[in-house]
Each structure stands twice: as C-alpha cells, then as structure tokens.
Design a binder for these strands. Structure first.
Length: 567
RNA sequence: UGGGGUGUAGCCAAGCGGUAAGGCAGCGGGUUUUGAUCCCGUCAUGCGAAGGUUCGAAUCCUUCCACCCCAGCCA
C-alpha cells in the first residue's frame, strides 16, 4: 500500500479563496441566492486609479468566477462634481482592463423617479420629515461622538405637512440649504449615521444625465442600497469606511417596498507605498502641473498606467496576488512592478535601443561593407517574428558600456578586452578618442573574425554582452525615463505636505537615442523590451511624424546596480 | 471618553484545536549571446501583549495594548 501521507490541505499551487469568495459559495450552496449579481459603482467625478482596479477586478472577477453578472453603475447623485468626461474615461478603463458589464450602463439617476416615490413612501409612513435646520444647526443637533444628539424641532410635523413641504422642495420653492428631507430614526444612536440622516437635499444644479428635471437629489445612503435592490444586486461590495453605513443600508431596505434584499459586504481598500490615490491629491497633482495630466505615465491612474505601458494582464495579476481582506494594508509597489515585468518579459518582443550613444569605429571592418544579422524576437519563444539588424563599420553603444580600464566585475567593453555585441560579433577595444575636455567621444575597436554565433577560435571568450545599433541605419528617437513619482514611502505622512515628497527625478528626458530599424513599426501601448535596459512603448501623445518618443514602462531588474554601488 | 473594525516575517497573505502555506522583497548558488528571464537553496520555536482552559492554542476564554473609520445637505 502507498505510504504517502494523506492530507486535506490544498496543494501548494492551489490559491486559497478569500472571505468574499467563501460568502458567495456559502450563499449559493445554502440557496440564499440562485445566482450572483455584483456591481462596480464609481462616482463619475474623477479618473479611475489602481485602487479602483482592485474593486473592478473583485466585482467583475467574482461574477465571472461564479457564473453571475456584474453591472457598471455610475453613482451620480451629486451633479456638482460629476461630468460626462469622467463617465467616458471610466467606461474606457473598465473595458481596457478586459471586463464586460452586464447589459446597458446604469446610472443611479435612472432611478430618481422611483427613489422620489420611495421618499414619499417614507413620509407617509411617518419615517421621514422635512427639516428646516440649516447645515450648521443640524450639526449642533447631531451631537458628538460621545454625546447623543437632540431631536430637531421639526421632527414631529404631520404627514400632510411633510408631504406638502417636500413637494415644495421638489418644485424649487426653497433655496439650497434651507431645508432637507431626513429619515426619522434615532438621534441618540451611538452610530452617528442613524441620527436622522439627510436623504434628500436641494441642489439647483443641472445634472449631466437628467438635465434640469430635478433640483433635489438623493444622498448616497438613500440611493445606493435601493439602486442595488432595483438591479437585483445580491452582494453589494464596498470598502471598509462604509461599514458604519450598513445598518442604515439595511434600514432602508427593511422599510421600503424594494424588489430585492441585497446585502452589503466590506473589504479593505488598496494602498500602495510611494503612491497617492486620494482623488484630492491626484487632482492637485494635475491642477498644479506637477504632472502632465490625469494620464501622465507617472500617475497611478488606470489611464496613466496604460500610457506608461502597464498591461491589463499585469494589473489583473497584481489584484489577484494582493488578496482581499478586511485588514488595512499597504502593498509594496515592488509587487506591482514585479507583475508588470513578469507579463512583459513573457510577451514583449525584444529590440535594441542605445539610450546614450557612444560612437564605435571598427578599424578592421571595410568602409563600404554592410551585413545583416537576423535576431530572434524573443529569447525563450519561437512564435515571435525575427528581425533584421544591419551592421557596419560605424556603430553606437551606450556610454555606460565602455571604460578605458576597469576591474574584473565590469563585464563590458574595456581597452584590450573583448565583449560580445548582442546578436553579432565579438569585438575588442583598442583605443579611444577624447575631446578637449577629456570626454570620450569615440571608441576604436576591431572585429574578431568568425564570432557570429560562436566563441572566438583563439579561446579568449568575451567578458559580457552589450547592445548596439548600426551607425548608418537606425531610428533617432527620444526616450522618457520614468521613476516613482514620490521618494517617500508614505507621501504626506506626519504633518508634511505630500507635494514635498515628489521625486524631482521622476522624469528624465533623453533626446539623442538610437533604435534598431525594426522599431519603425512600433505602435502606442504595444510593449518592447529594449534589451539590457527595460520595457518601453511608443507614447501616442509625444510622438510626432518622423520623431518617435518612447516611454520607459519599467527597467529590467538590475543586480549590477547593487554590485557597482558597493565599490 | 461613544460606536464600528483590524492586528500572522520588511510587505501582501493562508490558517477556523493537532504542532506556522504561498507570493513580493532580501540573501546564497547554478544556467545564460540581456548583470534579464529561468532553476535551486535560505528566510517566524513564532502569530499585538499578558493570563487562563486543554494532552495539545495563531485558532477557545479573560484582560490589556496598538492602529484604522465615523460628528458633509460628499461618495
């Protein structure tokens, strides 16, 4: 018999499920629900960022995993801050991430008629009243965290009076802030959200979706749960700060003739170090010109990451790896970077591009000779197209790849030493030329015969491999090197301004780069690995006809940087 | 000092009374025409702390501590 120990533990490769997956599975198993419906409910008042990506992956992912559906609903109850510009960008971001919402796009504003009817319902049941307290007075009556509130003097108006007053609110007969409709719950509740919350307020503002039809708008608390019920959402997933609102969410569901009883569940929002995700801070970065718009490649917005060259697969994998829990956490940005490199390494075709060119003249190579080498598109895959590399007497290598002399740890070109030119010959440096200031402006080297695809016949192997481009046939281009936007792990912690933590070197412009000819076909958002440098993509906004501009998505992991800094 | 939450390695995170998964980062080594990738090894006598129950506790009980959220007619 086998003596292999039996175990019920999941195998090491099996990913354990998180608490929400467990809840959905339980509800399905117990027959609480027959199918799963979730929703992603952004307010169209800003661009989506990495934190939203987590929510999108969670809500759409859960629906996908359990064979259910996920709606895209714009939570547009505050017309002062919302606009169609944001609606469009959000749709694009969700689609780009690879998700498909069920049916048409929904708007909370689609339900304003029903919501208004339900407000009337509450009034008729004596569970809501029009309150004339000003915002300031309301705050005083609300009490504090440790002291109970007091009842509003308008709390006991008759149903008829409330009905008449609410109708006047709707008809625009009152000024903003003059009165509001409040749910009559409990001014002494320890949970402040239950101290007669405002459910309708006056805003004489045109709505991006309903136009001038309304001058009163429902609050988030009054709109959200009921919208979930209307759409038949089974699991309404939100972030932890809404936990205290859950009793209120349930109160409305219990006191209104809603068609379904959705349940709210909360999870911890995503935080990433060296990054900010608050809408206020992102907006400030844009408005004050610290970055070049919401889709600046340094922004943690989905549109910024897309332009930077991050891929949907990388982002989805990241969201998968960080998990879903109820504990506050700060994910290391290195985890995100790992996911980006992981996807790009597997899928980005290779190319060579010299960022800081240094001329190399091959003294023993004929003036008029040109060879063409064929290089693989990917070192570990054979399904990529090959590319042609022209080779001539004059080449360019990176200034970092040559030194007059160096210790044995330096595995690049040194006078008297050999190096392999990637996909081409081994060469040996003989001398270099300097300008009046002593800067090296040219390297003189010789080609070692018969070294394409094999080592030198004399047995002296090259120390390393460097990239290069042909001097007479390459694409001049610009490269934008990006680094993290902030130099502090938690920008703005303590009492400092987060702007003080901005990395002054988050963008480095290189205007004299040279790319191999195959890069003429580069398209925006399609990634390349510039060998030994990192992953890059063409920038659609900065590139012009005849002048390519590449964004560095992310560098390659660089163990040499660590070694060289130690000496 | 009211209410609601959360504490497992530098970071994320499994674990649900039977003796601490996995990933990221780090460190050491191997392969390599990318100092990349890949591969191998290493990394918690310890689960916020202290007591208690139990043959046995990260898991149960008690007390304490720390941190997060709530006093918008924002979401």
């Amino acid at each position: 018999m086998s003596d292999t120990p039996h175990t019920d533990k999941p195998s090491a490769t099996e990913k354990p499920s998180h608490f929400l997956q467990n809840i959905l599975k339980r509800d399905l198993d117990e027959g609480q629900v027959t199918s799963i419906t979730t929703r992603f409910p952004p307010e169209p008042n800003g661009y989506l960022h990495i934190g939203h990506a987590k929510s999108i992956c969670l809500n759409f992912g859960l629906a996908e995993q359990f064979g259910g559906q996920c709606n895209l609903r714009f939570d547009d109850t505050n017309p002062e801050k919302e606009s169609d510009e944001f609606v469009e960008s959000i749709k694009r971001d969700v689609t780009w991430l690879g998700f498909e919402w069920a049916g048409d796009i929904r708007f909370t504003s689609d339900y304003f008629d029903t919501l208004h009817e339900w407000a009337l319902e509450l009034i008729r049941a004596g569970k809501a009243y029009v309150c004339d307290l000003s915002p300031d007075q309301a705050r005083e009556y609300r009490g504090t965290l440790t002291e109970p509130g007091r009842n509003s003097p308008y709390r006991d108006r008759s149903v008829d009076e409330n009905l008449a007053l609410f109708e006047k609110m709707r008809a625009g007969e009152f000024a903003e802030g003059q009165c509001s409709l409040r749910a009559k719950i409990d001014m002494a509740a320890p949970n402040i959200n239950l101290r007669d919350p405002v459910i309708y307020r006056i805003k004489k503002v045109r709505h991006h979706h309903t136009g001038d039809k309304w001058c009163i708008y429902p609050s988030y608390d009054f709109a959200h749960g009921q919208s979930d019920a209307i759409e038949g959402i089974t699991h309404s997933i939100c972030t932890l700060e809404f936990e205290d609102h859950r009793p209120l969410y349930e109160w409305f569901i219990a006191n209104l003739p809603v068609p379904a009883e959705p349940k709210q569940y909360e999870f911890a929002r995503l935080n990433v170090n060296y990054t900010v995700t608050s809408k206020r801070k992102l907006r400030q970065l844009v408005d004050e010109g610290h970055v070049d718009g919401w889709n600046d490649p340094r922004m943690p917005t989905i549109s910024g990451m897309r332009r930077r060259g991050y891929t949907p697969a990388a982002l989805r994998n990241f969201c998968e790896r960080i998990g879903v829990t109820r504990s506050d956490s700060v994910v290391d940005v290195g985890m995100l970077e790992y996911c980006v490199r992981d996807d790009l390494d597997k899928n980005a075709p290779r190319a060579m591009c010299v960022l800081r060119p240094l001329k190399v003249t091959l003294t023993n190579y004929p003036e008029d000779k040109i060879e063409t080498f064929v290089a693989p598109g990917h070192p570990n895959r054979d399904d990529f197209a090959t590319r042609e590399l022209p080779f001539s007497r004059t080449l360019y290598i990176d200034v970092e790849d040559f030194r007059e002399e160096a210790n044995k740890k330096y595995k690049r070109l040194v006078i008297g030493k050999r190096v392999r030119l990637r996909n081409a010959y081994v060469i040996e440096a003989e001398d270099c030329v300097k300008d009046a200031d002593g800067n090296i402006i040219e390297v003189l080297a010789r080609v070692i015969e018969n070294t394409v695809g094999c080592d030198p016949e004399d047995g002296v192997k090259p120390k390393g491999v460097i990239h290069w481009v042909c001097g007479s046939n390459h694409i001049p281009c610009d490269v934008r090197l990006y680094d993290r936007l902030f130099i502090e792990a938690n920008p703005g912690s303590g009492d400092t301004d987060f702007l003080q933590a901005i990395n002054p070197e988050s963008l480095q412009l290189l205007n004299n780069c040279m790319a191999e000819p195959s890069l003429v076909d580069a398209k925006p958002e399609s990634a390349y690995q510039f060998e030994r440098e990192g992953y890059f993509c063409l920038d659609e906004h900065y590139s012009e006809q005849g002048r390519a501009v590449f964004n560095r998505t992310i560098s390659l992991r660089d163990s040499w940087a660590k070694i060289s800094q130690q000496h």
